[in-house]
Design a protein around this nucleic acid. Structure first.
Lengths: 194, 194
DNA sequence: GTTATTCTGGATCGTATAGTACAGAACGAA
DNA sequence: TTCGTTCTGTACTATACGATCCAGAATAAC
């Protein structure tokens, strides 16, 4: 062994992720990434590989964080409708305040790259499936508790929620208006009415 | 007057729009645009200005076409639920078959540029508002015909449909699976249940 | 200490890209 | 035909970008 790494790889990845998240893949230059991580090109390349590899690792990180957040939000001991409502409220709050105006990193990658890049499309698909699964499991538990009709199609509602939330966050990028977003929220949540 | 233009400006704009639509703004190079329009750089610049101006004109064109399509779809003499369902079916059909995998040009621009570019955000907002207005008017007519409850919030449903359709098209980019999209469609349309 | 190994910052390279310049061709008006 | 104007294709420029290289610094093993 020899000289140890002077920076925190994890912290650097977090900063790089935020850079990609805010500006997109193509628009984020290596200089941006160096500035965000406070690393030199050499260190970036040694630690993460090239720009594209860094995007992959950023997206993986985001996915894990996102899954954890959603799972936590849906595991609270409250009716599922209330849990989802609170989760969406948090999204709207961040959109209106500005910090959420970057949208969803997964959705951003889907919009920018899924069409051109098969590997990215597959990764986005897996990420969305995991989110969908988190919703599905929460909905199934709620259905077992009697919060949803026995006939409710839990799979379909989960898929719908994923798409609806992506739509909400996308629209919120261009029109971060609370009244408009609350309207969307209200209709969105009706899929959880008993 | 002197030598007249040899190409069809309108046709060239249509091709340029398709290029931007398929690849996004940054990823579409001037060479791409020249190849798509079969024009030289000089002609492109003389006719449309720079790359960014060409994007603006492409988006304006798309907006007009899109509004016309939506208005036509919602003006058919059928219940509004049926009209919207048919419209969404068309979207899903194109996503599954491949041609719709480019997503919505407005949504793509929102995802790529709305955060960075105020003018683009404003343009996207206006476009989405026009689409929303088309839905709102169709819904109001349907409500007057008794297809929707008197208490239904037509504004909110219109906003929701815009966001929901954006979500559907975005998710469809990464997962162009008919069963999944039909699930989303089914729950989405429940906002039009009487 | 000494040495071998790894890290770091800056310089550098090749390429791709948006935009411009220019010369010649095509056309209408006289 | 002639002349002025506009169009078109090619060559060019300047820059930005991703990636690599290299020399020196820092550190652990001995």
């Amino acid at each position: 062994m020899a000289r140890p790494r002077e920076f925190d790889t994890d912290a650097a990845l977090e900063r790089a992720m935020q850079a990609f998240w805010a500006k997109g893949f193509k628009a984020t230059t290596l200089d941006d990434l160096c500035a965000a991580t406070k690393l030199s090109r050499s260190s970036l390349y040694a630690a993460f590989g090239g720009k594209r590899e860094l995007l992959d690792q950023s997206l993986r990180r985001y996915e894990e964080q996102g899954i954890a957040r959603i799972t936590a939000a849906l595991s609270r001991p409250v009716p599922v409708r209330e849990a989802v409502a609170a989760f969406v409220d948090g999204l709207i709050e961040r959109i209106v305040s500005g910090s959420g105006r970057v949208g969803c990193f997964i959705g951003n990658c889907a919009a920018e790259l899924a069409r051109q890049d098969r590997a990215m499309a597959a990764r986005v698909r897996r990420s969305l499936e995991r989110i969908e699964a988190a919703f599905r499991e929460a909905l199934a538990r709620a259905q077992a508790r009697g919060e949803l009709a026995k006939t409710a199609d839990v799979d379909a509602i989960a898929r719908f929620l994923v798409a609806g939330i992506q739509g909400l966050r996308l629209v919120g990028k261009a029109n971060p208006d609370r009244a408009a977003l609350d309207d969307i929220r209200a209709v969105l949540l009706r899929c959880l009415d008993p």
